[in-house]
């Protein structure tokens, strides 16, 4: 049973990719407002853990709930409150940054002011907003994707290597945004290989080892 102050609760969760157990009886509790860093070797199961929390992969066995919603039975309800930024950015390459933001604003019902503020917050100035995503650098695309997460007002942010491809200023900006998001009540789970950078941001660190979760304590 998950309590009201828990954002994520996994108990012996098993996720199968084909017949391979990408998560093997993983157990985890993340409290609301935490910033949790997930570390682990490539292929250990970090991304699968994030995708399970996002309701993108089915739970084969065990229990999993996100923001009080049981992922086995209430996946859609949970997803409405979750924002995920994976290796891909989820952008439309033929549209400009502004058009991507406007599309997401229309899809989730955000106001024009919120859309403008999100772009501003992520340093997407006028010229960049008018640039087609296909012509943007990796860092600029990342900023656009993060602006979309701001528009979505997600309660649980799931980020896979959020600093990848960003310059120092962009990395600092992301850290600030994540801290602001948690101050506003959101919970953040970050999978990263950059332990020094992400560790400074996180309140707690866990490690995924062979599909199981190992606590590494408070940061």
């Amino acid at each position: 049973m998950s309590s009201v102050d828990e954002a994520v609760r996994l108990h012996n969760a098993v996720v199968l990719l084909g017949s391979f157990p990408a998560l093997a009886e993983a157990s985890l509790v993340v409290k609301k407002g935490e910033i949790v860093l997930i570390s682990g070797a490539n292929g250990a199961g970090k991304t699968t853990l994030l995708r399970l929390c996002a309701g993108l992969v089915p739970l084969a066995r065990g229990e999993a709930s996100v923001l009080g919603f049981n992922l086995a039975t209430q996946r859609k309800e949970a997803q409405a409150h979750v924002g995920m930024l994976g290796h891909a950015n989820g952008l439309y390459l033929d549209l400009t940054a502004q058009e991507n933001l406007q599309f997401w604003g229309a899809v989730v019902g955000a106001s024009a002011q919120e859309i403008a503020l999100s772009g501003e917050r992520m340093g997407l100035h006028t010229r960049l907003l008018g640039t087609t995503v296909a012509k943007m650098s990796a860092g600029q695309r990342r900023r656009t994707a993060l602006a979309i997460l701001i528009i979505r007002r997600a309660s649980l942010w799931l980020l896979d290597e959020p600093h990848a491809g960003l310059d120092a200023a962009g990395r600092d900006e992301i850290d600030n945004i994540l801290r602001e998001a948690t101050s506003a009540g959101a919970t953040v789970i970050v999978a990263s290989h950059e332990l020094e950078r992400a560790g400074a941001l996180a309140t707690r660190r866990i490690e995924v080892v062979g599909g199981a979760i190992v606590e590494r304590g408070a940061q």
Partner: peptide
């Protein structure tokens, strides 16, 4: 192309 379908699904 950039996994937008997943983003749409996650957004509920």
């Amino acid at each position: 192309a950039d996994n937008a379908l997943d983003a749409i699904k996650v957004a509920g």
